[in-house]
């Protein structure tokens, strides 16, 4: 889902870069000291996830895990994904430096949405009892769906705004092609949230209001 260099038009690139910079600045202000280790951990997971290809049928998909990071971090995903995307562009040539802003928005906005939509599901009750396991699994799976679905929608929007040949047919394809990513990301995210609740409940309790 990394858009490549030379695909988007200049106004779209500039607008996305400005919005992304604002998001990074806002996210940095919200990054508390206590959140730092989790932010680094999820940043590293997001950075590595896209290099892991899971063979599915004749092709292969790679994990994205933006929804999971968003659920745990909220607006802090902006600086976290910025670092991860910058490193992916520098080390793996995924995306590129001029499209960094657009790719950051595509990954981070759905992640923030996942945070606000799903955080209620994973926080322990007022008396400290953890949420039921089923609810955690639902929240984790929904992370995958919100994260990937939102990213596909935003990528399509960026392509539409830029016009150009071939794109109109491709936009429907983008969502269709990511169907297996939905499944894999949802499964991994659900498993991760359930595991966190068992071995590290404090991590979920720390999900910010």
């Amino acid at each position: 889902m990394h858009l490549a260099e030379g695909v988007l038009s200049a106004p779209v690139l500039a607008g996305a870069a400005a919005l992304a910079a604002a998001g990074v600045a806002f996210g940095l202000r919200r990054l508390g000291e206590a959140q730092l280790p989790m932010a680094a951990l999820l940043g590293a997971a997001f950075f590595v996830a896209s290099t892991i290809h899971v063979p599915v049928g004749v092709g292969s998909v790679h994990l994205i895990l933006n929804g999971l990071a968003g659920l745990m971090l909220g607006w802090t995903v902006f600086p976290v994904f910025f670092v991860a995307l910058l490193l992916q562009a520098a080390l793996f040539s995924f995306g590129g430096f001029t499209v960094l802003g657009a790719n950051l928005l595509i990954m981070a906005l759905p992640a923030v949405a996942a945070h606000y939509l799903l955080r209620r599901l994973v926080r322990p009750a007022a008396d400290g009892t953890p949420p039921p396991r089923q609810r955690l699994l639902v929240a984790g799976a929904a992370c995958g769906i919100v994260g990937i679905g939102g990213a596909a929608a935003l990528a399509s929007l960026a392509l539409v705004l830029s016009g150009g040949h071939l794109f109109t047919e491709l936009i429907g394809l983008l969502v269709l092609a990511h169907l297996p990513v939905f499944v894999v990301d949802a499964l991994i995210s659900a498993a991760t949230v359930a595991l966190l609740a068992r071995i590290l409940p404090a991590a979920l309790a720390a999900v910010r209001a």
């Binding site: 896209s50 004749v58 998909v61 040539s93 995306g95 297996p180």
Partner: peptide, 18 residues
């Protein structure tokens, strides 16, 4: 059904090189 859908869709990784 899920398995069939997965098998039917060719998914491309993120980077293209030439």
């Amino acid at each position: 059904t899920t398995a069939a859908l997965l098998l039917a869709t060719t998914v491309q990784a993120h980077g293209l090189a030439v």
